Computed example of a mutant assay.
Amino acid sequence: MLSERPTTPAVDSAIAILQLLVNASYPLTQAEISSQTGIPAASCYRILGSLLQAQLIVMDPGRKKAYGIGSKIFQMASTIYGRQSIIPYFHPIAEILKNEVHKTVLLSIPVGNTVVVVARLEATLSNHFHSYIGQTLPLHRAAAGKAILSLRSKEYLQHYLAGEHLAATPELDSQLERARRLGYALTHGEIEKGVSCLAAPVVNLSHEPIAAISICVGSEELSEQASRSYSSPLIQAARQLAARIG
């Protein structure tokens, strides 16, 4: 197990404030932020001032002395999104896959020990599951993450599990071995109850996983035959995307 890295309280508090404002459904006052984060009022005041100066948050004009997410956050997110050169190639391939399986198609990339949804193509008749651009999940929990982990080395997996303070389990080993053998990973209700996800890895020329394409279906409709009918075009789409990006 890896030792905990030292942290800086002021930075931790700033992150907590940003996370709170991102998830809030309306702008929050300093008192509300202090109460919900547990940050002392004086410290909260100073940190809010620094975040305001950096344009990471703004004073909301619709509510007196209330704060919301600032323009700089959107600028940074847009810059990162624009650097994902894989995304323009994803959309035409995902459009074909969506029309074939009639499910919403997601593109996820590995970021550290997580997998992040960076593109999403909505199917009109698909069930509306809780997936969105920016959704971030541990690699070992998401189908996309397991598809990526299945092509990583044993050393990488050991390091990853140690970083997550997890032990290797026969169940996870079996899931990753199955994903390697069949070309796609499968999860049942691990992220959302009653929802199953299938994901196929996208690899580069060195056969390293750099992304995963996934679809989600209701667990009740995912029979063995349905799994085969969904997985075949899914794997084909992942291979086409890999070929396009070279």
Results as ranks from 00 to 15, higher is better:
residue 140 H to Q: 14
residue 149 L to G: 01
residue 192 E to I: 08
residue 181 R to C: 12
residue 201 P to I: 03
residue 175 Q to V: 08
residue 145 G to E: 02
residue 187 T to S: 10
residue 141 R to T: 12
residue 190 E to Y: 12
residue 156 Y to P: 01
residue 167 A to E: 15
residue 163 G to A: 05
residue 191 I to S: 13
residue 141 R to V: 15
residue 161 L to H: 00
residue 175 Q to W: 07
residue 150 S to N: 04
residue 202 V to N: 05
residue 174 S to T: 14
residue 144 A to C: 07
residue 206 S to Y: 13
residue 183 G to T: 07
residue 208 E to Y: 08
residue 181 R to T: 13
residue 210 I to F: 02
residue 139 L to F: 07
residue 134 G to Q: 03
residue 186 L to A: 07
residue 148 I to S: 00
residue 172 L to E: 04
residue 165 H to Y: 13
residue 176 L to K: 08
residue 204 N to A: 03
residue 207 H to T: 09
residue 158 Q to F: 09
residue 190 E to R: 14
residue 137 L to I: 11
residue 205 L to I: 12
residue 139 L to P: 06
residue 174 S to H: 14
residue 168 A to N: 15
residue 162 A to I: 10
residue 186 L to K: 10
residue 170 P to L: 04
residue 210 I to A: 01
residue 175 Q to T: 06
residue 162 A to N: 15
residue 197 C to H: 12
residue 142 A to F: 01
residue 191 I to H: 13
residue 205 L to Q: 14
residue 207 H to D: 13
residue 198 L to G: 02
residue 199 A to Y: 00
residue 203 V to R: 08
residue 134 G to M: 00
residue 157 L to K: 06
residue 198 L to P: 03
residue 184 Y to K: 01
residue 196 S to D: 02
residue 170 P to V: 04
residue 191 I to D: 14
residue 189 G to S: 05
residue 160 Y to K: 06
residue 174 S to V: 06
residue 207 H to E: 12
residue 175 Q to N: 10
residue 206 S to K: 13
residue 154 K to I: 09
residue 210 I to N: 03
residue 147 A to K: 00
residue 195 V to H: 02
residue 207 H to I: 09
residue 168 A to V: 14
residue 208 E to R: 09
residue 179 A to V: 00
residue 194 G to Y: 06
residue 185 A to N: 05
residue 208 E to S: 10
residue 137 L to G: 04
residue 200 A to F: 07
residue 187 T to D: 08
residue 170 P to N: 03
residue 146 K to I: 00
residue 194 G to Q: 07
residue 182 L to E: 15
residue 185 A to F: 05
residue 196 S to C: 03
residue 140 H to M: 11
residue 173 D to L: 11
residue 202 V to E: 05
residue 155 E to Q: 10
residue 197 C to G: 10
residue 165 H to Q: 14
residue 153 S to T: 09
residue 146 K to Y: 00
residue 146 K to R: 10
residue 209 P to A: 09
residue 187 T to Y: 07
residue 196 S to L: 02
residue 162 A to L: 14
residue 169 T to H: 04
residue 204 N to F: 01
residue 154 K to C: 09
residue 182 L to Y: 13
residue 136 T to N: 15
residue 185 A to M: 05
residue 194 G to F: 05
residue 144 A to Q: 09
residue 138 P to R: 07
residue 145 G to T: 00
residue 190 E to M: 13
residue 150 S to E: 01
residue 177 E to I: 08
residue 201 P to N: 04
residue 137 L to P: 04
